[in-house]
Design a protein around this nucleic acid. Structure first.
Lengths: 338, 338
DNA sequence: TGTTAGCACTCTAAGCTCCTCAGTGCCAAC
DNA sequence: GTTGGCACTGAGGAGCTTAGAGTGCTAACA
């Protein structure tokens, strides 16, 4: 059934009001604040109709209305006004990225932090793990007798620094040789190619196999396991919102949010989509009473990662979206200017 | 005033009971469960005396007693029985460290995780940042036109991998030269020496100064800023304890715990002390109603870092201490065997 | 002198009723 | 289709009562 313009307007008012005040919205407050041209009785019948259609519900017969999940969905897709960042907010974003090295990790951290601070929600982020990045450098440094430091750099970032254990009896010289072989085998390859490589090793180099395996493991770990690079900021922000006044709900929320694996899953689906909104239990990993708004950024051909905000259904979507867009824009500018 | 043996016994019973049940302890329950040889009236007068001395308090006239901060202090220093880990717990610790590379970071993470899981409290940890570690390797890899990857390795660990920006116009060749000079200047030095070094640079190498500065900055950042390496595990565990049934308290707790700077401060004082217990507001950075139990581990001459548990005053000190000791012991074994 | 039983006292927590009031649904009139 | 009027509903707070846990005190006892 199609909604009349007036119904849309009323629904928008209800959602806006509920987002702001976290209180059921009454017909009276609607007419007083936003619709002086009609009486509360009129609005009441519209509200009853909207409830019938599944967009609103009441906690009890004599309470005002609260939006349903369907209402939120409609709200973000059709009803919501577009927000605009204040100069102050833009400034905050810019200065968050002021000191920028080429370090992707730092970018992710800063982005997560500023997003959380501006929105007052918990923010989560994960750097892009692109299977198509090209390996530029692989180095193995001997370190102690039985360990070496493995370093893998792609055209985008330093992706791996990790200690690996060196087979007993392997000399530094041999390690260097192995390194040369590995470089030859992997540099210039895409991560996904390297990951699945089955290297033909000549008889005399058979002892290098362990090292090769370590390298391949390290690469495939990186490609497959995003949870390591998940960044979480403002996990305590959720407590600022009244729907989390009960400890049980907080517990539920924190148990999702403090598992980096789960977060990584949440963030991994929506590649290539600029802004993605998941409301309520649309995804099994999102707690039922939560919404997740994410944005995936890239500048030129460099994927920067996925950033998002997780919070109550009654989230200030307008603000969150404008902050995410703002961060995206400034990041893009920054990288392009470089 | 010195406590009689019976008073000590009663105080221990009260603290034990309160730690277990989180309920005020009554004279009746004491006699029934632990002191059948006397009547509750006797215990009552002892309790009144202990209250007079400041070890116990009542929420209201007809409630049982709860321990004061003083009581907890006495409890951990004198009264508490020594705990012992079960075989299962020992097994859990061992298997947590089963897959061990020489990577200090991974050790810290694993330790924090297993400590949190076994104790059911939030655990925090920070790897040792020892000013006296000796620099073994410094490498600078060119990466892109204007950036390079700086790598600093000490005798203990990889301490820094960081992108630095390269002065415009500097060739790869020059960068290699700079690297050679830097290696010559720093390798073999202690971190604290390197940090304060004022390098004499010959006229013709003046353009390398920026790079030198970057290296020195990176080292002093590392020595001074421990917050980067702070690991937090089980931040949601606090919600399992009834004293955090109110959201305000949770908020207070999380706001301390989610600031890595604050945690780093908490953990930094107690160098060289094996087990350190701070109860209540002894330290301004600990929330008033929290206790912090930390242990600083080293194996041979390798400092491994400081690990700890933060939780309610009513903490299971016995268990926490035995877990921390257990982890320490297994770590030590592991490193020594190597 | 320390211990004990007995008892009055205190305070909390739970259950109950009463009342208020916000907000609704419905209806008849416009 | 809109409106004012009105009865109805249910939440939530105030006030009251009661049960029960636990204490402190006292007098008697060993």
């Amino acid at each position: 059934m199609k909604l009349s313009e007036r119904k849309k307007k009323i629904l928008q008012i209800v959602v806006d009001d509920y987002i702001t005040n976290a209180q059921p919205v009454s017909s009276k407050s609607i007419t007083e604040k936003h619709m002086k041209e009609v009486s509360s009785a009129t609005v009441r019948s519209e509200l009853a109709a909207l409830e019938e259609m599944g967009y609103l519900s009441q906690l009890h017969t004599s309470s005002g209305r609260v939006p349903s999940i369907e209402a939120y969905k409609l709200y973000v897709s059709e009803l919501m006004d577009k927000g605009k960042l204040t100069g102050k907010e833009l400034g905050a974003i810019k200065s968050a990225f002021a000191e920028q090295s080429g370090n992707l990790e730092a970018v992710v951290k800063n982005a997560a932090k500023v997003i959380s601070e501006l929105t007052d929600y918990t923010s989560i982020a994960v750097a892009a793990h692109d299977r198509d990045d090209v390996i530029e450098k692989i180095s193995i440094f001997p370190f102690k007798e039985d360990a070496a430091l493995l370093l893998i750099v792609t055209d985008k970032a330093l992706i791996r620094d990790k200690f690996i254990s060196v087979p007993e009896g392997m000399s530094e010289e041999q390690l260097k040789n192995a390194n040369r072989l590995i470089e030859k085998a992997f540099v210039g390859k895409k991560l996904c190619e390297a990951m699945d490589a089955t290297v033909e090793i000549e008889e005399q180099f058979l002892s290098y196999k362990t090292i090769f395996d370590c390298v391949i493991d390290a690469i495939s770990d990186y490609v497959n396991d995003k949870s390591e690079d998940v960044v979480l900021e403002g996990e305590d922000k959720i407590l600022n919102h009244p729907e989390y006044a009960e400890v049980d709900k907080v517990k539920n929320f924190l148990s999702v949010v403090s598992s980096k694996d789960k977060i990584a899953n949440l963030l991994s689906d929506d590649n290539d989509i600029e802004i993605n909104i998941k409301i309520g239990g649309e995804d099994k990993d999102i707690p039922e009473d939560c919404s997740l708004v994410t944005a995936t950024y890239s500048a030129g051909n460099v994927k920067l990662g996925t950033y998002g905000v997780i919070g109550p259904l009654r989230m200030d979507y307008q603000k969150v979206i404008s902050v995410l867009e703002g961060v995206g824009k400034i990041l893009e500018d920054m990288i392009n200017k470089k």
